[in-house]
């Protein structure tokens, strides 16, 4: 199986769970075990769009209990004799091999998956800076042997891309250090925030320079953050920024700010 596989380097590994639970899109080649009419094929395939029950296959990395997964779209791209090329858009954790097996059962002729290529997971598509292992090894060679980092810099994206799909909150300079030590975020630390935050949402916390500080769970919705002067905005779940990059909040700074009327 080939296609889009986001790779997280070093500290980016911390946001893998956030990057994984996103909608996926595949191109799959199904081989039918006998010919079926175009109409029958379309009719049966249509039945698999929506919520389906699926038991993970024998060879899988999760518990094999019956699960409900949502198939967002199935588009038949081509159908020649026993070959069917299709584009499938699904929830995470859907097994395409199993889906195709089940389509074959309902068609009454049997089917199996011959080829699979992932074309999208979350924000990562074939068009977003996708590279091959070969390209990467070239970039690494240039960097190690020629001290030329241009390609490597271009191929590697900053961690912030991995949270592009989350609502974002920007916090002030003095709120960064506490949050990077795991503290909750309080209203006075907030600069700017997404208008569509709901309580319980997974959110991404950013510095004024748009560096990712942490992943957190919202304890207020956007209107509450806007209207309140104090209180807890979010509970920090996963810290990405190392402590000590931004200044520590001290009584002295607090007094200086008060004196300056900030």
């Amino acid at each position: 199986m080939s296609g889009v596989l986001p790779i997280a380097l070093e500290d980016s590994v911390k946001i893998i769970s956030v990057m994984t639970h996103t909608v996926k899109e595949y191109i799959a080649l199904m081989e039918l075990h006998s010919n079926v009419s175009e109409n029958k094929l379309r009719e049966i395939v249509e039945m698999f769009v929506g919520d389906i029950y699926q038991r993970p296959p024998l060879r899988s990395s999760v518990k094999r209990s019956l699960r409900i997964r949502k198939i967002h779209e199935i588009e038949i791209l081509d159908h020649v004799e026993r070959w069917v090329l299709m584009r499938v858009k699904t929830d995470p954790g859907t097994y395409i091999r199993k889906l195709i097996h089940d389509i074959g059962l309902l068609l009454g002729v049997g089917a199996h998956m011959r080829e699979l290529r992932r074309i999208k997971t979350g924000i990562f598509t074939e068009d977003l800076n996708m590279i091959t292992l070969h390209q990467l090894s070239e970039a690494v060679y240039l960097y190690n042997e020629e001290k030329d980092e241009t390609l490597l810099r271009k191929y590697v994206m900053p961690i912030e891309y991995g949270v592009a799909h989350l609502p974002k909150i920007f916090i002030n300079t003095y709120a960064v250090d506490p949050v990077s030590r795991g503290a909750q975020l309080a209203v006075p630390g907030v600069l700017m925030f997404d208008k569509n935050i709901r309580r319980g949402d997974l959110i991404a916390i950013f510095t004024p320079k748009s560096e990712l500080v942490a992943i957190a769970r919202a304890e207020m919705n956007s209107e509450e953050i806007l209207s309140r002067d104090k209180g807890i905005v979010s509970t920090t779940l996963r810290v990405i920024m190392k402590p000590g990059v931004y200044p520590r909040w001290t009584r002295k700074i607090s007094d200086e700010k008060a004196a300056a009327g900030i």
Binding site: V4, I7, D11, L133, V156
Partner: peptide, 24 residues
Amino acid sequence: YGIFPWEREIKEHLRLGIINLDKP
């Protein structure tokens, strides 16, 4: 304080990096 994500020096850029790999 801090540094814009697109201005990190290369070691930092890798430490906080993501690659969109075309898996063979």
